[in-house]
Every structure is written in C-alpha cells, then in structure tokens.
Write a protein that binds this DNA or RNA. Structure first.
Length: 920
RNA sequence: GCGGAUGUGGCGUAAUUGGUAGCCGCGCUAGACUUAGAAUCUAGUGCCGAAAGGUGUAUGGGUUCGAGUCCCUUCAUCCGCACCA
C-alpha cells in the first residue's frame, strides 16, 4: 500500500469547495493579483488533455501568488453562445440552452477533477440574461456614443447633437462614415428620420449597408476574423461578398490607440505583430489629381509621395464611382465588359490567381499636379475598392505591381529614385536619391516625402493622411443563439430599449431557422415587439460580444446595478496574467481591447488596457498510432517488418496501444471485420508506428483527462502537463511518459512514510547538505515560475526529491517547506501531507518559504578545466583562492601535464567560480 | 512575396548572463527480488571506438581564450498576412 491518490484528491476537492477556500473578496490590506484563463466554449466533446494545459499553468501561478501573499482573483466561466449548439438544435430540435447546460455540466465535472483553485462563486455564462444584460447595456452605450478626434475619445451623442444644432457638422472632427456637410439650420430643418440617418454615421455601433461576408450554409454574415481564405473559420463553409444592412462596430475609430497600446503590454512579440498587421497602419498622403475635361477630382492615397514624378498612369478599382463618368464613349463597351468580368470573379478566385494581369484603359487622362503632364487612367482589379480611395497613382519604377502592369500593357516606366535597375525589376526600397523629379532632385527618400507632402498641402491639392487596413467589425448575425439587440424600430428609425428594461431576453421560437421570407430566426418569435407594439431587431450579436468584457464582470459578477462597481474595478483593475490560445489574436483579443478602451473613455473602467501580460499556450498535438494492413488482405504486419510488404497504414485507437504495443485482442474486438484479422508479429509482439498529428476524434488519438486522473490522479496529470515542455510551445502528447511523474509523486509520499506506509517524520535538525538541497530548490522554483518556465520547476522538484531520498531525509524542517513549494503544482498530495504534518489550516494559507542564500554558499568550487575550449578534467579549489594561485595550482597539476604535453601555455583564463581555460 | 516562431540523443526536453552540451523524464540494455508477471530497486545509455580518444546542438561561414547561446548564409517545419497603393 502506498499513496491513495484517488481518495485523497476527492477528499480535498470536497474540503476546498465546502469551505470556499478559493473565494476571493476585496481586501485592501493585500496586493491584488488577477489570473485569468480564456473561458471555454463548452463543446459536446468535453475536454481532452490539450484543453487544461493553460488552466493548469494559470492555476499554478495563481496558487503561487497566493502563497506569496497576494489576494488572488482566479475565476472561470463559459462562453456559452455559439454556433455548434445551434447547429445541433437545427438538426435535432433540441433547444440550444439545454445542450449548452448539459455541456457545461460535463465541463464542470471534468474541471473539478483537476483540482483548480477557481472561485466558482464568480462564474459567468454569456448566455445568462443577468450576464448578457450588461452586453446589451454596453451596446446601448456604444449606440449613444461618437468618437471625437479632437479630444481623442468617445463622447456621448448628446454633445454631438448640441454641436449640430449650433454649427452643423462643419467643424466636427469625428470618426464617421462619409457624411455630407450641413449647417445648423439645415440640421434643425431635418426630419427625425433624416437626423437619425446622419447620426448613424457617427455612432460607435451603427446600422449601414455594408459589403459583408455572407455564409449561405450558416445562414449568417461573419466578421473578417471569422473568415479565412474565403471560408468560414467555424465549419469551413464558403463565404461570399454581399451588400447587406448590418450592425457594425466602429472599431476603426480606435485603430491608432489599439496600435499604440501594444507598446504598453507584455505580450509575445508574435501576437503583437499579428495585431499590428491586422490594424495595418500606413502613413502617406492623399493627393487629388485633376481629370482632363472634367471637374471631378481623382483622389489617390500613396505612401510614396516621393515618387510622384514617376507616375505614368493611374489605376482605379473597377467599382470606383468615377469610372462610369470619365470613360470615353469609344472605350465604354470594353470597360463595361471588363467590369462585368471582374464582378463575376469571387474574392477567392481573385486571390488564387494573383499573377494574372488584367485591366482596361478608360480613355480619360489625369493631370499631373506638378508637371501638368497627361496621365492615362486605367481600371484594374489589382486595385481594391475597400482600401484607401480605391485608386492609385501608379509608379511602375518603384512598385512591383505597377511595374508588372506597365510591362504587360507597355506603359512607360520612369525611374525617380536611384539605387535599383528598373530594366530588370521595380525598385521598391525606401532607400536612394530622388532623380528626374524637379524640386526634390537630390533629396533622400525621407526628405523627398516630407517636401512633397508639404508642397501638396501648401498648394491645396491634398493632405497628409494615415490609412488603416482595419475595418469596422460586422456585429450582427442572422442566428438564434446569441444576445438579442436592445433595439426596436419606430417608423423605420432604430431606438434603444430603455436601460431599466434590460435584459431583453432571448425569446422562444418554433424552429431555429430563418423564416420563409429569409428573416433571422428571431422573426419567428411571438410578440417580438415592444409593449407599444414596435418591432424588435431580429438579428443577434456575434460570438465576440459576450467575451469582450467578461474579465470586468468577474470583478463584480453579481452586481445588479452596474457592469462592474467602481470599488471592484479600482481594486482588481486589470488582468495581471491572461493565458489562452493564439487563435484569438485578431478576434477576441482585439475586440476586448477596443471594448475596454471605450469603457475607459466613458470613465467606467480605470485601465487603458485589459490584459497586462498575455501568454499563449502551445497546442498539445496528438500522437497517432498506426497498424499496417497488407493490401487486399486482412493481415496486419508489425512496424519493423512492414517494408517487406505492400501495405497501407491505418489509424488505430491510441487507447488500445501501450508503449507502441498493440493490444491484439482489443483490436480484434474493436470491429467486426477485424475479428478474423491475422498478424505478422516481431518477437511475438505487434509494434505500432506513430506520427504527430492534430489531436482529433477522427484520428483516434484523443486522450481524455478523466481516464488519466482515474489511473494516475490529478496531481500527476497536472505535473505531467507542465513537464511536457515550455508552455508556449506546441508539443505532442505521449501518455507513456506520465509514468515518470507518477513515480515521482509516490517517491515524494515515501519521503514522509516508512515501509508500512506509516507517517515517519523526524524532528531532528537539518544538516547543511539537506538545507542546501531545499534552498537550491526554493530558489530555482521561484525564479522559474516567475518566468513561466513550469517544465523546469517540475524537474527541480524531481531532483530535490531524488537527492533527499538519497540522504533518507525525513526531517520536518525540510519536508514542510518542500510541501509548500510543491503545493501549487500538486495541491492534493501537498494538502494531505500538510495535514499529516499536523497543520490545521489549508496549505493555501501557508507562506512561500523564504530563500536563505547562506545555505547555498560553499567553500569549494569544482572547476571544469578546458584546454583550447575543450573540457578535460575537473578540479576542486577553494572559492577564495586568488587567480594567480589558481593558475599556479592548475599548471602544476598532474592532469594538466598530460594535456600540455610539455608545451608552455600561451594563456590561462580563469573565470572565478565558472571555468578555467588553458590556451596552448 | 512579406512578417513571426522553431530546429539539441530513439522520444519530450535542460543548459537564466557567451563558460562543463545532453539535467529531468520516457524508452532501451543488463542485473536483483519474484513460481511467474506487475511493481520496486541497482547499473548503463548522444554517436564512432575494445580502449585511449575522436566527434557532436539543421547547414556553411564569422567573431571570441571559449558559441546550442552573438553576427552573416543556406535549408526545413509551423503560424499569421497577402494585389493594403
């Protein structure tokens, strides 16, 4: 009999839950620490071993911080709205709430078994009306706000209306959709509908006709981050571009602040880079070109104003509004045909075939603003209507796309920046001297840019401009299982539902499908009207709505008056450590930063950035096993013999493979066709091959944490997940290796117990050697955990226990501190040992032992001695020995003589307490 | 194409600041205990070599007394973005 993990773990989990050991309350005498996991979407498949990786890491960190005297907030909840439950509902008629509830129960059961220190009293579920009330509430705030570029923050719409009434929109500097200028009297004369339409251009959530990503299979529009290469990220269904009236989030107003904020937060460079990319800032100039014979101006955005004298043609997107106006009659037919052709090509086709160069001349000419030369105006699909002005000044000498186009259509190429060879390729680098460029000749690129922009502004033909790739986020979904919009329509004008009437609860419907007229499922709801009979919005909010402020709600989850109280927000402030997957880089992580900045502007939260430190845990990959079927037979050949046959590899369930050995009986029983299978064995065994793949049901390589907990206990699982390797790295799961950690747990137990499994603790004083082992471990563990190196701490625990076992150390003085430092990793066994040592409180209330460097000091140091950088032997010398003495000692040493071979060393390098290197 | 990350034994990995490459664990080999197995324990285990020794951190080069670590080159894998003007 040794350690009974199963009984012990259950006992302490019960104790922790019943005594609410992990309940967090505001305590101003203690510093706060907020550790957050990205809350899961509770899928029907339950957790596999990859899911809890991040939760275990954050739990260890949370428990560690608590031992270090912090007041730790460590909550958990569920991102409960989402497509899978709804798709399931469509198929089965089962209400998604029921499926979701069931999945949550299963998740909770699995999570509980792992022994997390979550404060479950703070649980949130995005689909609960007392939670989504606040999602709707923020929506209303966004609806009633506009972005003032002068103050660089969001303000309430009332302030905007006041300005309109006095000055119209002439002086307003706002983040807004394109709006005609109007005066105060014009404003005051407008109908309510007209005013509403104008205000829509300013609101931070707005209703507008937008080109959206329409996914016919899912029956809904999707945001840009939910689409990848023309397919939906969830489900992989084709996505089309379509113009529809949709709610959008004016996240572009915050582009610059979202970009700047990245410099203040401690996130991995890779993910910051992804966000910078997504925001896609480019600085340059907006320049207006006159068009020959027309009054219209053609404005283009360029990041290379320095190359303006190299413009030899202009290119418009085929959808550009000027195309129909300026195309000459003789070119009309050709141009129209080209437009028609481009329209028929989907985005996906366009992307797939980037190399194809197409375009047509419109017959019109633009006038160069400086040289006055005539420049032909073309249309081509390499220019995107959605970016900049949808038109470019083409400089073939210094832009590779323009170059390819010019070559293809035989348009002149003028070199204006020296440094490249434009007969071969375009010279795109921003490095060189301006030539053939009148007033900027001889200037370097940077100076030339500045000079041109100044001239452009002075002569009133354009202005300095910054562009962003970031688009406003489409915020409505034509689905059932999401937050209803707190919006109703009166005479076609959208109004918000009164805040005091929130939450607007999700209604029941008879089917989770669009109506026959194509309206979203909510249109099926009975009485989906206000009490005055006005129709309520039928779209629902997207997945990221509910996750955008959940970290705030955790601070004050039961508050019925507000999203988060000032007191709670000022105490918990922001998330100190956030752990989750990198797949949310451009979705959740950018939306919630936006959401937070908006709430900050309104004075509702005190921090500009929600997540101070972010760690993206790596993916746990599956280790698939294979058997090899000889073609056209029911015979299977063992791994090392397979090459003698013509075979095909077949996935086999990893649960019937142990250490690459196939359990033949279970394999035969796994399918009727295999009952009569024959095997070609090696040494009487069937050896399976293996490969690292994604962990997935279909590849038969899913490993379930419950089964491992059953067999080895939660502490072992926790330690092993950490032991696998660095948290941020992707790594394959190999169940085999867990045995080593399991042995370690039992070894730890044995330190405290005799051969009869009776507690056996000595009260004797520890010897220096034992103290050195302990304090070496304390030092290593606290250093490693602060740099999130969890795998190395597990090794140092093993080393520590190995060394103490060697010394047969069972002294309380050592073991009690060891129990504390190990408790964040293996909380159950630690709690049990703590209890057995006679402590009455929970180990979570213990203090992390203080490091005493004095125990680590040593009189001697064992120097590795190298000759020309190669280590040859070791020598133990006193640490206080002077360098000349060390040199003397080493030169006269017998071992040195052998390596010197009678030669005189050229040089001896002594790095005290590091190394000795002799150069010969 | 651009940007980012990674590359060390049969496998997962370690080496925090340029200072003993391979810690810890898996696996493997041999042995002990056992009727047998499991479990446990002991020893060994980068590669070549009987040994002495040589060699070795994706590749090739460089800096240095000394490089897995710094610089340059090439290659491979993964991720993100992709006509963004």
């Amino acid at each position: 009999m040794d350690y009974n993990y199963s009984e012990t773990e259950k006992k302490w989990q019960k104790y922790w839950a019943e005594n609410k050991i992990y309940k967090a309350t505001i305590d101003k005498n203690k510093p706060k620490f907020y550790v957050l996991d990205m809350f899961p979407y509770p899928s029907g498949a339950g957790l596999h071993v990859g899911h809890p990786l991040g939760y275990i890491a954050s739990d260890i960190y949370a428990r560690f911080k608590r031992l270090k005297g912090f007041n730790v907030l460590h909550p958990m909840g569920y991102d409960a709205y989402g497509l899978p439950a709804e798709q399931y509902a469509i198929q089965t008629g089962q209400h998604p709430a029921i499926t979701t509830e069931r999945n949550i129960a299963r998740y909770r059961e699995q999570l509980d078994k792992i022994g997390f220190s979550f404060d479950w009293d703070r649980e949130v579920r995005t689909c609960n009306s007392d939670y989504y009330k606040w999602t709707q509430w923020v929506f209303i705030k966004l609806f009633k706000s506009w972005y003032n570029k002068n103050t660089d923050k969001a303000e309430t719409l009332a302030s905007l209306i006041k300005v309109f009434e006095i000055n119209g929109n002439i002086k307003i500097h706002a983040a807004c959709s394109e709006t005609k200028k109007f005066t105060a009297s014009e404003w005051n004369a407008m109908t309510e509908k007209q005013q509403s339409d104008i205000l829509m251009n300013y609101r931070l959530v707005y209703l507008a006709d937008t080109m959206v990503n329409w996914c016919p299979v899912l029956g809904t529009v999707l945001a840009n981050d939910e689409v990848s290469e023309g397919f939906s990220v969830r489900g992989g269904h084709p996505v089309l571009k379509k113009s529809m009236k949709q709610w959008s989030l004016r996240i572009t107003a915050y582009a610059e602040r979202l970009l700047l904020g990245l410099d203040e937060i401690d996130w991995a460079d890779s993910i910051k880079e992804v966000q910078r990319n997504w925001i896609g800032k480019s600085e340059g100039a907006l320049i207006n070109f006159k068009i020959k014979n027309f009054d219209n101006l053609l404005s283009v955005f360029t990041t290379r104003p320095d190359t303006i004298f190299g413009v030899t043609f202009m290119t418009l997107a085929p959808e550009h509004e000027l195309v129909s106006t300026i195309t000459t009659p003789d070119r009309k037919e050709t141009v129209n045909n080209y437009i028609k052709e481009t329209k028929s090509r989907s985005d996906r086709e366009r992307m797939a075939d980037v190399k194809r160069i197409t375009g047509e001349f419109t017959g019109a000419y633009a006038i160069h603003p400086f040289s006055g030369k005539e420049i032909p105006v073309w249309i081509a699909d390499y220019v995107l209507i959605g970016y900049g002005t949808g038109a470019v000044m083409a400089v073939p000498a210094h832009d590779s796309r323009d170059y390819a186009f010019a070559k293809h259509f035989n348009i002149p190429i003028i070199e204006v920046i020296s440094g490249g060879d434009i007969s071969v390729e375009s010279y795109d680098a921003k490095d060189g001297i301006a030539i053939n460029s009148e007033f900027i000749n001889g200037m370097k690129v940077k100076e030339a840019m500045k000079t041109v922009i100044e001239k452009v502004e002075d002569t009133d033909i354009g202005e300095r401009q910054i562009n962003y790739r970031l688009r406003d986020a489409i915020f409505s979904r034509q689905r059932y299982w999401g937050e209803p919009f707190p919006i109703y329509y009166k005479n076609g004008i959208p109004y918000t539902i009164d805040e005091k009437d929130l939450p607007l609860e999700l209604p029941e419907v008879d089917a989770y499908l669009p109506t026959e007229s194509g309206e979203p499922p909510l249109a099926r709801a009975k009485n989906w009207n206000t009490k005055d009979g006005y129709p309520i919005e039928c779209n629902t909010m997207p997945g990221f709505a509910g996750s955008s402020a959940y970290y705030l709600r955790y601070m004050d989850p039961q508050n019925r008056e507000t999203l988060v109280s000032k007191e709670a927000n000022e105490y918990w402030q922001d998330v100190d450590l956030y752990i989750g997957g990198a797949e949310h880089a451009t979705g959740h992580l950018i939306y919630s930063r936006f959401w937070n900045k908006f709430l900050y502007d309104l004075g509702l939260v005190c921090k500009k950035e929600p997540f101070k430190k972010l760690i993206n845990q790596g993916m746990i990959q599956g280790r698939s096993s294979f058997v090899y079927r000889i073609k056209d037979t029911n015979k299977f050949v063992s791994y090392n013999l397979k090459d003698k046959y013509d075979y095909s590899p077949i996935h086999v369930d990893v649960s019937i493979v142990n250490n690459d050995l196939l359990n033949i009986e279970e394999f035969k029983n796994s399918h009727i066709d295999l009952n009569s299978a024959e095997f070609i064995l090696e040494d009487g065994k069937y050896i399976c091959g293996w490969e690292v793949e994604k962990m997935s049901k279909s590849l038969l390589n899913v490993v379930n944490p419950d089964a491992l907990i059953e067999k080895y206990g939660a502490d072992t699982l926790r330690l092993y997940e950490m032991f696998l390797g660095p948290l941020e790295q992707h790594k394959p799961w190999d169940t085999q290796g867990i045995e080593g950690v399991f042995r370690f747990i039992r070894k730890l137990w044995k330190l405290f117990h005799d051969n009869n499994n009776d507690l056996n603790i000595s009260e004797e004083k520890a010897i220096p050697e034992e103290l050195k082992i302990l304090h070496k471990t304390i030092k290593k563990v606290q250093e490693d955990i602060e740099r999130f190196s969890f795998n190395t701490t597990v090794s140092s625990f093993m080393i520590c226990v190995n060394e103490l076992t060697e010394l047969k150390c069972n002294k309380r003085e050592i073991l009690q501190d060891l129990t504390i430092i190990i408790s964040p990793y293996a909380p159950h066994i630690a709690e049990e040992l703590w209890y057995l040592l006679g402590n009455k409180n929970t180990i979570s209330d213990a203090a992390f032992p203080l490091l005493n460097e004095a125990y680590l000091a040593s009189n001697n140091f064992t120097y590795p001695v190298s000759f020309n950088g190669k280590m040859r032997f070791k020598i133990e010398l006193p640490v206080n020995m002077s360098i000349p003495d060390i040199e003397k000692a080493i030169i006269t040493n017998v071992d040195s003589q052998k390596w010197l071979e009678g030669k005189q060393p050229k040089k001896i390098i002594v790095v005290p307490q590091k190394i000795i290197n002799i150069v010969i």
